[in-house]
Design a protein around this nucleic acid. Structure first.
Lengths: 108, 108
DNA sequence: CGTGTAAGGAATTCTGACACG
DNA sequence: CGTGTAAGGAATTCTGACACG
């Protein structure tokens, strides 16, 4: 079960490029990170690095902000969605467990 | 016929990150551009921007170089492959033309 | 709360050139 | 030919802070 990271998830884009891609100011992008809406990685010397997925996330955030949604609410929605995802993953895991219990453990 | 550019093709990666990703020095990366092996775009202020496809291309180049292949030869191979691609595309186009001629022009 | 801005410093990138082999 | 490096300058990014509302 190798953890291959797709082009979409690889964190390789600098904040300047993200700013161009999203139309957001660097200030805004950094602020959304402070509000825990986005989680860039850091290069060896501390520069932020974003993925295409992050860019799309930021575009969603920008749209919500334009509608007047506050960062706090956006974060709550994100957490809610995250929880739903996690539960789905757990149900899937449990189902697999039952199948294995009845029909034996299979190599994947 | 919209020209959507995939994550793989979007030129968004700076030379420093490409250097990390490929293990090549920035000097080498710029030199391969000079030898027309790689074609980054430029940001508004002149900074090179690469795609994931470029990164993979550079890794191929690095492997060839390790085998002792010269940049000139690598370029010749690239051009040869490019020509084969183009001809394939042309044959496909001609076939479409014949189909249209017999069965009428269809909207795509 | 969300964003702009000036501040100072550190890291990045660029080009053209000299070096070596 | 392919790559390293020092050089000088311009652009990028970072953080912490003050401002406004």
């Amino acid at each position: 079960m190798t953890k291959e990271i797709s082009y979409k998830e690889r964190k390789v884009i600098t904040i300047g490029v993200v700013s161009e891609l999203t139309g957001l100011s660097e200030r805004q992008i950094r602020y959304y990170e402070e509000r825990k809406l986005i989680f860039p990685e850091r290069s060896p010397k501390g520069n932020r690095k974003y993925s295409f997925a992050d860019v799309e996330q930021l575009i969603d955030i920008a749209n919500k902000r334009e509608e007047g949604v506050q960062t706090y609410e956006i974060r709550q929605d994100m957490l809610k969605r995250k929880r739903a995802e996690d539960e789905k993953a757990i149900r899937k895991e449990m189902l697999r467990g039952q199948i294995n219990a009845r029909f034996g453990i299979q190599k994947e």
